[in-house]
Design a protein around this nucleic acid. Sequence first.
DNA 1: CAGTTACGCTACGACCTGTAGCGAAAGGCA
DNA 2: TGCCTTTCGCTACAGGTCGTAGCGTAACTG
Lengths: 214, 214
Amino acid sequence: MSSMCRRTNPRSSRTGRPRSTEADTAILEATRAALVELGWSKLTMGDVAGRAGVAKTTLYRRWANKSELVVDAVAVLFDELELPDLGSLQADIEHVVLQFAALLERPETKTALMAVVAESTRDEPLRERIRASIVDRQKRLVLEGRMRAQRRGELPADRDPVAVDATDDLIFDVIAGAVVHRALVSAEPVDEPWVARLSALLVGGLGAAAAALG
Amino acid sequence: MSSMCRRTNPRSSRTGRPRSTEADTAILEATRAALVELGWSKLTMGDVAGRAGVAKTTLYRRWANKSELVVDAVAVLFDELELPDLGSLQADIEHVVLQFAALLERPETKTALMAVVAESTRDEPLRERIRASIVDRQKRLVLEGRMRAQRRGELPADRDPVAVDATDDLIFDVIAGAVVHRALVSAEPVDEPWVARLSALLVGGLGAAAAALG
DNA sequence: CAGTTACGCTACGACCTGTAGCGAAAGGCA
DNA sequence: TGCCTTTCGCTACAGGTCGTAGCGTAACTG
């Protein structure tokens, strides 16, 4: 709290004209609109600036490039995912998978998600941004679902906390990966029959693992 | 076989200078090299042409754009995947998953795969090309592994052929999706412990489903 | 009021795209 | 052998995007 605590958080610079938060939201909204209309590859910074009613230079003051801008624009959409208690592990999984599939059906996310991930393979800061803004935030769903199943007695209580973490990570990659692959790579519908099969596979697999350890 | 059967297969045009197959291979090789050095987003058609020692116009005579070129350049790498019989379903799965993970570790595939998939969300011909050149060709691995497991008695024989197809598709999306998500989105290693967990989950899930039906 | 920062605007060099036009090369066919 | 057709390398080009620089103005602080 000294007078020079500044470089750590440039947003709290005490002096000068503050950044327009209206411009922030207008830009992110314009970015999502441009994604819907143009898709990732035809979206340009100049176009977004025009839609948002700001100068192109204003975009570059906030984001280094298109990828970082788009990550911020779509990240908020992923926070809409919820995990209501439907009474059984399988029902919970099916519900969240259908939500996730609906999210991936939206043209903004469909075109943007794979693109920024592809870009992040050669851009470490971007990878970190994606992890922090999107990936890690959704692991909460797996955590919550697993704990709920344990409370119900569908899954055994924790023994080795390291193994539990590893299993949570595995389930996350399996569910998210399978849905993304089905929707975007195989390009086939993530509908109730498919979701039911996936959920049954997971519940069966988790149950079998628990039985083997018990 | 009349004298005018021509438009159906432009490659078999009887007259005129034939396309240089050396140029074909040089271009695809140059494309992979450029992917390694530059990554997807900085790869340009002019750069590839220069590396391959051909004119830029020669590229555009063969491929409509960067995406189609890159699909052809990396598709061949996916054909290296094999499924040797290791004696058990779980061992077979683990082996092919580790192969697939090694493939995704290569800089060419890592940067290209997600990029062309992202592009294909707004490009129907490209999606078809990806499906034909990469996706569908790898489903053979699931088919072979499932039939082998049935021969061993690890899985029950087919009853409903429709359900069998659906399960094959599901397993394909789950395995490929999980590995891709782990490697590129979560950006964490696809190592033996993780692969063992994934395989155990799948084998357990398939076994539980079989038991429920039996 | 002085100091500092953000803003809109314009302009710009560098780069990439995809196409057109040319003369030369390499095949098929009679 | 000569004609036809297609591909080849080359050059040139219009159109578009990127990311930055410079300017005068606006907004907020103490």
